[in-house]
Simulated scan of single mutants.
Amino acid sequence: MIRIRQHTGKIAASLGALLAVALTTAALFIRHNTTYWPRARRRLDRAGFVEKSVLIDGAKINYAQGPANGPPLLLIHGQMVDWTTYMRVLPELAQHFQVYAVDCYGHGASDRAVDRYSNVAMGRDLTSFLRTVIAEPAFVCGNSSGGLLSIQIANEAPELVRKLILEDPPLFSSLHPRFINTAGYDLPRIAHEFVNSTETDFSAYYVKHSAFIGLFGDLAPTMIRGALAQRKQRPTQPIGWWYMPPAMNEMFRVLDQYDPRFGEAFYTGVWHADFDHAKALAGLTVPTVLIHANWQLDDTGTTLVGAMDDREAARAAELIDDVDFRRVDAGHTVHFDKPGLFTDILIEVAEN
Rank of each mutant, 00 (worst) to 15 (best):
I2N: 12
R3S: 04
R5W: 07
A17V: 15
L23V: 15
T25N: 12
F29K: 04
R31S: 14
T34G: 07
Y36I: 11
D45N: 12
A47K: 00
G48V: 06
F49M: 07
V50R: 11
K52P: 00
V54T: 15
I56H: 03
G58W: 12
I61F: 10
N62H: 13
A68T: 11
N69S: 04
G70R: 02
W83C: 00
T84I: 05
T84R: 01
T85W: 04
T85I: 12
V89T: 11
A101C: 06
D103Q: 00
C104S: 13
Y105W: 10
G108A: 03
D115K: 13
G123H: 01
R131V: 11
T132M: 07
C141D: 14
G142K: 06
N143P: 04
G146L: 07
L148Q: 15
L149I: 09
I153F: 07
V161C: 01
I165M: 13
I165T: 03
P170I: 02
S174C: 13
L175Y: 07
F179R: 11
N181Q: 15
N181S: 10
G184W: 10
Y185I: 08
D186A: 05
R189V: 09
F202V: 15
F202I: 14
V207L: 09
S210Q: 04
G217A: 01
M223Q: 03
R225Y: 08
L228Y: 08
P235F: 01
T236V: 12
G240E: 14
G240K: 09
W241D: 05
Y243P: 00
M248K: 03
M251V: 13
V254R: 02
D256E: 08
D256Y: 00
G269E: 09
W271C: 12
F275T: 05
L281G: 04
G283H: 02
T288N: 02
I291P: 15
A293L: 10
W295F: 13
W295C: 07
G301T: 10
T302D: 13
E312L: 12
E312H: 06
A313Q: 03
R315G: 15
A317S: 06
E318M: 06
V328P: 02
V328D: 02
A330W: 05
V334G: 00
D337K: 02
L341T: 10
I347S: 00
V349H: 08
A350N: 04
